Simulated scan of single mutants.
Amino acid sequence: MTLDISPAARTALADWLDHAKALREASDNTITAYRADVIDFIAFLTQHHAEPQGLAPLARVTTSDMRAWMAHLRRTEIGPRSMARKLSAVKTFYRWLADREGFEPTAVLATRAPKFQKKLPRPLSEEAARAMIDTVEIQSTTSWQGARDAAVVTLLYGCGLRISEALSLTGRHLPLTDSLRIVGKGNKERVVPVLPVARRAVETYLSLCPFPPERDVALFRGARGGPLNPRLIAKVTEQARMQLGLPATATPHAMRHSFATHLLHAGGDLRAIQELLGHASLSTTQAYTAVDQVHLMKIYDACHPKAG
């Protein structure tokens, strides 16, 4: 998208994105979203004021401008969650720009995001998670592909991996030991334990796979030997959940949610679960506690000194 903005403003936007990537350890996807959201905001200001947007006009944004922008977003019929994300990106940019250019960004920072109800994770029961792994294995037409799909889903549930993390494994991770070093979002590294059942699942897949593992090549291969497409895992998971009569929320990511919830059920420490999941903040992990308040209250009643 080309915008009628000054070279100084364009440079400021690029510098901010570089800053976010270097110091905030933002992922490539986050940087792409930041860029798109701030450019959309500047494009609106350009049209709203019918003039080019340089550093000086950006510093003069008023409460009225912000209200007009929010009204514009509502007219585009995007959801409140997306509106909140766009506003968050603009606020982050303005905090950085105001500090660098020395102006007061109150009009931007005081703008309130629309309220929306956060969607809580919907984990599977332990029985359903096991059934999902077993059923995924029989969805493919060849035994090696079935073993591959079962191994991937087992890693999601047994290690709490994101689908992108599981599919980023290469031959250099072999042989699997009792722990695995994962590079997750924001290039943050963590170590996760690998259960024997997960190791066996991967070993079974490797014994059947017609493509020998290579050090710098994806561990999980597609039918022609290329890296496995995550959409294929989503497809076989969908087929399995329909066969099992599970809800539409029984997705590959739900296996990761289930990993965290079942650890919590077993008395796992929330901080430890945060580390295993690779969450940047505890508040993200705390979302998992909301899925079973009854269980947490039972622990509270049994363990709190005043409970008796």
Results as ranks from 00 to 15, higher is better:
residue 92 T to P: 00
residue 85 R to E: 12
residue 181 R to W: 02
residue 89 A to N: 07
residue 97 L to A: 13
residue 80 P to I: 03
residue 116 F to G: 08
residue 89 A to W: 02
residue 105 P to C: 05
residue 136 V to P: 00
residue 170 T to H: 10
residue 91 K to P: 00
residue 135 T to K: 06
residue 113 A to R: 03
residue 112 R to T: 15
residue 211 F to S: 08
residue 121 P to D: 12
residue 167 L to Q: 01
residue 148 R to P: 01
residue 173 H to C: 13
residue 109 L to Q: 09
residue 85 R to P: 14
residue 127 E to A: 13
residue 135 T to S: 07
residue 130 R to I: 06
residue 163 I to F: 06
residue 125 S to C: 02
residue 144 W to H: 10
residue 170 T to D: 14
residue 158 G to S: 11
residue 111 T to G: 05
residue 86 K to P: 02
residue 207 S to N: 06
residue 134 D to W: 11
residue 114 P to C: 04
residue 167 L to P: 09
residue 182 I to Q: 06
residue 169 L to T: 09
residue 169 L to F: 01
residue 198 A to H: 10
residue 99 D to A: 15
residue 126 E to F: 10
residue 138 I to K: 13
residue 104 E to S: 10
residue 172 R to F: 07
residue 83 M to F: 06
residue 82 S to N: 09
residue 205 Y to M: 11
residue 161 L to S: 12
residue 186 G to A: 02
residue 196 P to S: 07
residue 189 E to R: 08
residue 145 Q to Y: 12
residue 160 G to S: 05
residue 205 Y to F: 13
residue 175 P to V: 13
residue 133 I to L: 15
residue 166 A to K: 03
residue 93 F to L: 02
residue 174 L to V: 05
residue 172 R to C: 03
residue 157 Y to H: 13
residue 108 V to R: 02
residue 151 A to R: 10
residue 130 R to F: 04
residue 164 S to Y: 05
residue 157 Y to N: 11
residue 174 L to E: 03
residue 152 V to M: 02
residue 206 L to C: 10
residue 153 V to S: 06
residue 143 S to V: 14
residue 170 T to M: 11
residue 191 V to P: 04
residue 140 S to I: 02
residue 127 E to F: 07
residue 104 E to N: 15
residue 134 D to Y: 10
residue 106 T to I: 01
residue 84 A to Y: 07
residue 209 C to H: 01
residue 106 T to L: 05
residue 120 L to V: 12
residue 114 P to D: 08
residue 160 G to L: 08
residue 131 A to F: 01
residue 197 V to I: 15
residue 194 V to T: 06
residue 135 T to L: 01
residue 137 E to P: 00
residue 170 T to C: 12
residue 145 Q to E: 15
residue 190 R to C: 12
residue 124 L to V: 06
residue 121 P to N: 13
residue 181 R to P: 08
